[in-house]
Design a protein around this nucleic acid. Structure first.
Lengths: 346, 346
DNA sequence: CTGAAAGCGCTTACAG
DNA sequence: CTGAAAGCGCTTACAG
């Protein structure tokens, strides 16, 4: 049963459908039918072909298949940052939906780099994938037009700008900021700080405006200060904390637009002897994996990553399978508040 | 300049190399040469073809290219768990090396599921990728034989069992355990516990044996207890900690074979009023992203993920580009100790 | 340096 | 239900 390891100067070659046909004593087309439309083939023939496939260890050449069929069976997903567990959740959701639909899902990591995002769009375009799900950077959606012009189906996830000419799945970022601020006010905090985040990032802006609206609606006596930062990393959180400590005027509630940032803040504050949440309650954003593992588990706003990936794949498949009846739409999901000990001690 | 958005009932179609050839007034073969061997084409022709490509927005059909050339330009990387930042580092390393070699890298996440690992091996095999880098599960390497039999090049990373018939990049796990135990003894701990990990996991076993060797070599008066656990997750760490607290006999140094596990331990211990590292020093493994972000930053053993990915891709390219002279080899990299505050207070 | 032509391994109407 | 044949869009010797 065990195949002989081929000698190194006799490179192994995968058997072709022709080999299978010969072995099963049927024609090439029949083998193809067994693979693609078994319902039109007799049970006996299927069995013979299946046996031949098994014996030969045949795997279909997907390049030839895609070329002949004019489309591939795989779907590409381009993520902004695989280091952020939100995107990992999106990938998992999309993966599940893809495999139950009999499609393969290939990932690419743009690593928060616009040029890589564009390059992976081209790679998937060249590969003639059936469709692409893109978690785009704010930087621009030029590549989207480019690949769509080639007839490639594409769905945006997590951010979609104001595009309505393709499907998208986004989260109500404004509402997330609103939830976070409301929570801090609910637990009696009144001197709020929205800490960090580049001002040119759409998501950060929306979250900040949500927080502003919450304070406005709630009104009486609650203040909301804003301190921007270069990025959303932990070091930015630390430097904002040091700035606050130097100034000596601490807020009693901090909203950070990213868990990383919140972690840096909490870290630096507790190091300086400030009690979290006693003196300052801190809430993050994203519900990253480490948010629950931290020594002070972090309150945060959770995005439904799994559902985002699932929905995005579903929209994409509809576009692929029903090109005529498909209508582009935007699905907006709600974030949810997760309360842990960085805002409410036990 | 802006292309007209095609009407929805006139689906866009990517232009072919034939279209480019016609537009540039050259033959199909010449266009191909411009793309693949520009050094044998005159500058004037290159310019004409390049202009035509630009005007038409041509992208090469990679399915046709792979089919005609008999090989693809992309490399596949199958990761065990994109939720573990070690694998993200590996992916980044491989990505960098791939793109400087002009290759594209596609990712797949086996999600610690053997069946998914096998399925992605087949998908990459069907896609006739130039090669595969696999971070395999302990569960088995059957799939490796299967795809190699088809002539697919494959490199193992992070774990390779005892295979010598393909290239691999691994880390000296035993040495990692040795480093961790030595560190705990260096800071004066003598009642050590190796906490958690399924006993059938190769990496866990090796790390434990490394710790044993360190204790043995160091000798006098140091004890090393072992408590296994079902998995490497944070919940397992918590339950081990509760068990220790119930028994009332705490060790003064704990080695956990994963940061997640260590985080659960630290969490539960400090909740119970145990001082880390005062009463118990805890060291993790992997240097995951959150290890440095925790409120008590975690000492850990770091694996050189970036370098692992880079080396793996380098080995793979050598095998692809020099099939005759290539010799399989195993590269073993060293882990390194990272000391933070979960073992040494400031 | 350029062109004409065979062929890569499949899918898919079309006959039968 | 099965088979013969055209064709998908490229690459690559081979002539010139």
């Amino acid at each position: 049963m065990t195949a002989v390891q081929p000698a190194s100067d006799d490179p192994a070659v995968a058997p072709s459908m022709n080999d299978v046909a010969r072995r099963a004593g049927v024609s090439l087309g029949t083998v193809s039918h067994v693979l693609n439309k078994p319902e039109i083939v007799s049970a006996k023939t299927i069995a013979r072909v299946a046996a031949a496939i098994d014996e030969l260890g045949f795997v279909r050449n997907d390049a030839a298949r895609s070329l002949a069929a004019g489309r591939s069976n795989t779907v590409g997903l381009i993520l902004t940052d695989v280091g952020n567990s939100l995107f990992v959740d999106i990938a998992r959701g999309a993966e599940g939906a893809a495999s139950s639909a009999g499609r393969s899902l290939l990932l690419a990591n743009s690593d928060v780099t616009f040029q890589k995002q564009e390059s992976y769009l081209d790679i998937f375009d060249e590969a003639r994938v059936a469709g692409i799900i893109l978690a785009p950077l704010d930087a621009g959606l030029d590549g989207v037009d480019r690949v769509r012009r080639h007839g490639r189906n594409i769905v945006l996830v997590n951010y979609a700008g104001d595009r309505t000419d393709c499907c998208s799945v986004v989260v109500d970022e404004e509402h997330g900021g609103y939830l976070a601020a409301t929570h801090l006010m609910d637990i009696g905090r009144s001197r709020l700080l929205f800490a960090g985040g580049p001002e040119d990032l759409h998501a950060v802006n929306a979250r900040r405006e949500g927080a502003r609206r919450a304070v406005r609606e709630r009104g009486n006596g609650v203040s909301l200060e804003v301190i921007p930062s270069r990025n959303l990393k932990s070091a930015s959180g630390r430097s904002i904390a040091r700035q606050l400590l130097d100034d000596g005027a601490l807020p009693d509630g901090i909203l950070a637009p990213a868990d990383q940032l919140a972690a840096g803040l909490i870290h630096e504050l507790t190091d300086a002897g400030v009690s979290v949440p006693g003196d300052v309650a801190v809430i993050g954003y994203d519900n990253n994996q480490f948010a629950s593992e931290a020594a002070i588990p972090m309150s945060t706003v959770s995005q439904p990553g799994h559902e985002m990936g699932e929905e995005a794949l579903r929209l994409l498949l509809d576009e692929i399978d029903n090109p005529r009846s498909h209508e582009h739409r935007r699905i907006t999901l709600d974030p949810s508040l997760i309360v842990r000990r960085s805002t409410v001690s036990r």
